[in-house]
Design a protein around this nucleic acid. Structure first.
Lengths: 126, 126
DNA sequence: CGGCATCCGGAATGATACTG
DNA sequence: CAGTATCATTCCGGATGCCG
């Protein structure tokens, strides 16, 4: 199998992450370009694959699949498969992930608050 | 110059980030393997390059340099150069970055709390 | 519908050597 | 001390096509 691994622990091993702090552990769990956005979109609802895809702009099937697998592996997202004729697969947040919501809220607030501040700096980036 | 860009806005453009939510903007600012760890180590102190390097295990000069440049560019880290004979360069958090601290605290707590929960899931990852 | 397999380019990171 | 330059490698993520 080619790229099962989307992110998670390349340079640092699990011990290091555990010993350093829960934060780095968390960061490792949440790494990946789409992870946060997906969790965000699943904030308070259950969505199926195609619905999620619609709500995450520009993501490809492949990336959505890989990222969802990663999130499921990390225990943040629950995947439910229904054996129906057009197959139906739904995703929703786990308990752990639900506890992240308030943190996202703050991070979002921080982002909104500092967007302006950073604009100058970002000019040179583009 | 080769790789000035460490991260920031590959797939999604700035507009998208701005329109979607401050969170994705924040994520983009904080992207990169070492960003969070560096900010964490600078939490309540000023450190010079070599000191930071000691505290960030396994990071290379190059990566530390690039990541610090990125953080400085994003307005999260302040770089101070002192024209001394052995050159001295110190880094500390900006106002914006200081506002992130409480969020890290929560994220760290979340990580600690859910480490155990995720262990089973992580088994299959290794 | 909800994936997975393969190929591939570009970005991120590492290793090593060198400098003001 | 605090980097920079260059080369090599690994990994992310997109495009396409196939399948139950």
């Amino acid at each position: 199998m080619a790229q099962r691994k989307l992110t998670s622990t390349n340079t640092m091993n699990r011990d290091f992450l555990n010993n350093t702090c829960g934060m780095m552990y968390a960061i490792d769990m949440l790494n990946g370009r789409w992870a946060l956005l997906i969790l965000y979109k699943l904030e308070n609802r259950t969505l199926r694959f195609s619905e999620l895809k619609k709500r995450v702009p520009k993501i490809t099937d492949r990336m959505l699949t890989l990222q969802l697998q990663e999130l499921e592996k990390n225990g943040l997202v629950i995947r439910s498969v229904y054996a129906e004729v057009p197959p139906r697969v739904e995703y929703h947040l786990s308990e752990s992930a639900l506890n992240l919501i308030p943190i996202w809220k703050q991070l979002e607030k921080w982002g909104d608050a500092h967007k302006g501040t950073m604009e100058n700096a970002m000019q040179s980036a583009v």
